[in-house]
Design a protein around this nucleic acid. Structure first.
Lengths: 244, 244
DNA sequence: TTTCAAATATTGTTTAAACAAGTTGTTACC
DNA sequence: GGTAACAACTTGTTTAAACAATATTTGAAA
């Protein structure tokens, strides 16, 4: 339920751009027109446009206007670009998700694990291994570490569905921020076994390591996602800051 | 030369956070204090803080304050995360960059190339192959396509230094926006030859495909960067939008 | 017709103010 | 001591206004 007015304007403009209601490379209506359309102040319109800029949908040009530079992307397979659960991502792309829980244990972080994950030594954690299928194909092997104090009550049944759904809707946690690092690593025997890969074919996987924070500023999750290389697809939009 | 006040405040706070002047997990001074420190309005302070949020440096909590969640990252090798030239990135990480131009030609986009790159068919282009070395090691093999009309006067000598430096400082072009897609691809013979790789070791490379726009909204560059997998490292910070 | 200056249109920055919404601390009351 | 109401503090949203900076159009003068 979005309440903020700028959020509504942002979504409306975004939908219109995606629906091709503004021609590619052409200018959107000027701010003054949008102010009348949406019956709001200039700041509110500008805030909505600012979000479209960071999305890479439009480009503002001082003195000229706001140009539509949105291009639809071909959804090859699995696409990430925001904090989105596997399920959300799959459904958005019209695919059928399934998750298999390979391992569900509780562990205490020792010095080594603490260094690797960033959890304080001695933290009580859930450690899970999960395999994500898309349209029947195993694509992602996840190693999840959840802080027990923040995700208490987690079960294998929940893990087979959506952990985030549980955290957000049952525990009422608010997920805010996720720092991610992408690398490419050599395939392991576990990868090979579960993701149906063959060293003679691909001998690497794409690895996304993420540390996720909730609204209390607590890092409650550390996850390593190992992706089948032939289905890995990550999108990004970068903005160049003016010269220093 | 940053002129905007919010930009100065943003940079000052960012430096202070990186210099550990605010303790990790603690709150920054409240807005009202920052208003006095920087002698500005509340909006201006909030704009600076907003940029720190998207950088993943801080987290705002309504009713509580702004928490520092910045963690320094170990710079393993080559790190991307903004629009940055190879040279800028290398120097920022204290490394020695060198670029070798393998190929410098001028071509006209046919239907196939147009479909692949997004340039209109018939576009006059520069096509370059460049090899980027870091501390003597060949790490990135670039296939660059530049729109001739936007990058006229490009020479192999310029390409061996910094093309962006030429575009920005000589042609006075303003680079604004870059859409990037990351995938993992099978290694090619060219990759193997130039990046000193061995199929028996890694048989994949990390591929970053980028389409870059200037301030006129023109896509003037299409580049495919093929990275040595063992040195590839991409950082990102994602923010979860509130539930729909 | 050409050229230069002024006016107009558009986005960029900053200030000020009011109210909303969430958190924390205090105080009065039982 | 416990609790509930209240006050104080903090961030979130929105409006209004003024001026700056850039691009385009208009119009007057040569």
């Amino acid at each position: 339920m979005p309440k903020a007015k700028y959020e509504l304007i942002y979504r409306d403009l975004k939908e219109k751009i995606e629906a091709d209601e503004f021609p590619y490379q052409e200018l959107l209506p000027p701010e003054n027109t949008l102010i009348q359309i949406y019956d709001c102040s200039r700041n509110t319109v500008r805030r909505a446009i600012g979000k479209l800029v960071t999305d890479g949908y439009v480009q503002t040009m001082q003195g000229k206007g706001v140009r539509n530079i949105y291009r639809p992307v071909e959804q090859t397979a699995f696409t990430i670009g925001e904090i989105e659960t596997f399920r959300e991502s799959a459904l958005r792309n019209g695919q059928t998700p399934r998750t298999e829980v390979l391992l569900f244990t509780e562990i205490t972080a020792d010095a080594s694990l603490s260094r690797r994950t960033g959890f304080p030594a001695g933290s009580e954690l859930y450690y899970l291994q999960r395999l994500h299928y898309l349209d029947g194909k195993p694509l992602i092997l996840n190693h999840n570490y959840f802080l027990k104090s923040a995700a208490h009550g987690l079960t294998p049944e929940i893990a087979a569905n959506s952990i985030y759904d549980y955290l957000e809707n049952t525990l009422h946690m608010t997920i805010v921020n996720s720092k991610r690092i992408m690398t490419v690593e050599k395939i392991t025997e576990i990868d090979e076994k579960y993701m149906d890969l063959n060293v003679d074919d691909y001998n690497c996987v794409a690895v996304v390591t993420s540390s996720t924070y909730n609204s209390d500023g607590i890092m409650f999750e550390y996850t390593q996602s190992r992706h089948r290389p032939d289905y890995f697809h990550f999108q990004d939009n970068a903005i160049r800051r003016p010269a220093t």
